[in-house]
């Protein structure tokens, strides 16, 4: 694909913004056009956190978009915020250790500017969903990665978002793993210098995510857990 429109949605504190920013930065270092914008509200802490990233070989237009190519959901309620960005071809990557397979809505009418501060009920109302389905319709691709469980089991709970980032990198196939590592190292250079284990853990998480993402991209089977 020549370009990707990605929404990353999670809870405040899950590192959604850092993840999205690192992805955009890595793509920039890889010579791509790249744009990251946080969906920010008035709260300083807590609540749903959304970020949008566009990666492209061509110049990028508006910073926000309606229909995403990929939605990355890290919590159920943040996923509900993404209904407005669902299209028939949208791929959904979710952390299956944190949430059930998400419901996927058809014919979602999206509004470009509704945002993280909108109360849940309001967000549901603006993202109208005429029909709910428990099982995803054909053509929609759901990718489940139990990032939190993997992180807890093999690395450290805190790095679950880096597993997700690695998976996004592999699925989108526009940014090399090494570039993501470099971007992360650049972002966290001081903390990495202080704590080499932290760097090690983060890089391992990226690699693990990359591996899982590569499998998922290959299988591309609906609802397949990898």
């Amino acid at each position: 694909m020549r370009s990707w429109k990605i929404v990353v949605a999670g809870e405040g504190g899950q590192g959604v913004q850092a993840l999205a920013q690192t992805l955009a930065l890595a793509a920039y270092h890889g010579g791509l056009e790249s744009l990251y914008i946080p969906n920010f509200g008035i709260e300083q802490r807590g609540g749903v956190s959304l970020a949008m990233v566009q990666l492209s070989a061509a110049p990028i237009g508006a910073p926000k978009f309606q229909i995403a190519d990929l939605i990355v959901a890290l919590s159920p309620r943040s996923y509900r915020r993404c209904f407005q960005h669902l299209g028939p071809e949208t791929m959904v990557l979710y952390d299956s250790s944190l949430m059930e397979p998400p419901r996927v809505e058809d014919q979602v009418v999206g509004l470009q500017a509704y945002d993280t501060i909108a109360p849940e009920a309001f967000a549901e109302r603006v993202g109208r969903h005429p029909r709910r389905e428990e099982s995803p319709p054909p053509g929609r691709r759901l990718i489940a990665i139990p990032a939190s469980d993997l992180a807890r089991k093999h690395l450290h709970p805190r790095v679950f978002n880096m597993i997700v980032l690695g998976a996004i990198g592999a699925i989108t196939g526009m940014v090399e793993l090494e570039l993501i590592k470099e971007a992360l190292a650049k972002k966290l250079d001081r903390r990495f210098a202080k704590d080499p284990d932290l760097k090690e853990n983060n890089f391992k998480a990226l690699e693990l995510g990359w591996e899982k993402g590569t499998q998922a991209a290959k299988e591309a089977a609906v609802g397949a857990e990898v």
Binding site: Q21, A24, L25, S34, L35, Y36, I37, P63
Partner: peptide, 9 residues
């Protein structure tokens, strides 16, 4: 606000 907060090259 978009220009303020978005990151691009």
């Amino acid at each position: 606000g978009y220009q303020a907060k978005m990151h691009e090259a």
